[in-house]
Design a protein around this nucleic acid. Structure first.
Lengths: 140, 140
DNA sequence: CTTGACTGTGTACCTAAGTACAGGGTGTAG
DNA sequence: CTACACCCTGTACTTAGGTACACAGTCAAG
């Protein structure tokens, strides 16, 4: 880190919890904007980049592809788009997220039932509750 | 499908919403148990396999890897494990799921704010709310 | 009894998302 | 001024999760 608060590639990687090469990969693929460079050509990231990297990793854990994450992030800076357009796209993403939350809730419910009803000791293989795990709460 | 209700590989693929080859891939990697075969060597899946395949796909959309999904499904049939053990592992998965739900809620909240506050017309690029999208609700 | 739609195995190929160098410049502490 | 820890670019390799054949057997309809 230098006096102006800018951070290096490895610093960003460390604070973002990712590999050094991943940062360069994200820049190449446009997930991270090309940062300004020092006289020697060193990348100078803003501290806010750390949040961006973490956001990317978290969204990934939630099942979004890098392409989808790029779309999410693009909502912020869409240059030629109107607010109404941003709104429409945001609402699509919201619906998407709500669907994920619903599915997770269904999975959780099944597991809670599994864990609560099926407690005690003895072999687990003959527990009838276990059978329900792969059940679709809602056929879709 | 034959008279005993067993279904073919392609039938399972179609109903599960995946590629034919994916079914064989899942069998190879142990996500799907090796089904009994007809005299000619054709796979005969039970209709319940459809639910299993769908469960796998859905869990994947929610950010679980096939390896993790295998663990989830293994809770059902863990042969040498006690119920207390199954319970412990189920609870770990539940915590995992709760974390995902929390993160999704935070993402949704940001997007809802984005969509609600930033409505109207005009270019979207100078909207201050958009800046908050990559914000961590909780630094972790 | 052949033809066309399936099924099987095996192997090769593909995309997404990294990860790992090699080969070379930079910068600062001793 | 030289070590040593960084940084750069470019290219190649890897892993997960499929997909796509080629080549061969099966089976129901005409």
């Amino acid at each position: 880190m230098n006096k102006t608060g800018q951070i290096s590639t490895s610093e960003l990687a460390k604070r973002g919890g990712v590999n050094l090469e991943t940062i360069r990969y994200y820049e190449r693929t446009g997930l991270l904007a090309k940062p300004p460079r020092s006289a020697a050509g060193y990348r100078q990231f803003s501290p806010e980049s750390v949040r961006r990297v973490r956001f990317i990793k978290r969204a990934q854990e939630l099942g979004f592809s890098l392409k989808e994450i790029k779309e999410l992030l693009a909502l912020r800076i869409a240059p030629g788009s109107t607010r109404a357009d941003v709104r429409k796209r945001a609402e699509a993403k919201i619906a998407d997220i709500e669907g994920k939350i619903e599915h997770l809730r269904a999975m959780k419910k099944t597991l809670v039932r599994l864990s609560e009803t099926c407690c005690g000791s003895g072999p687990a293989s003959d527990c009838p509750i276990l059978e329900s795990l792969s059940l679709d709460e809602k056929e879709k």
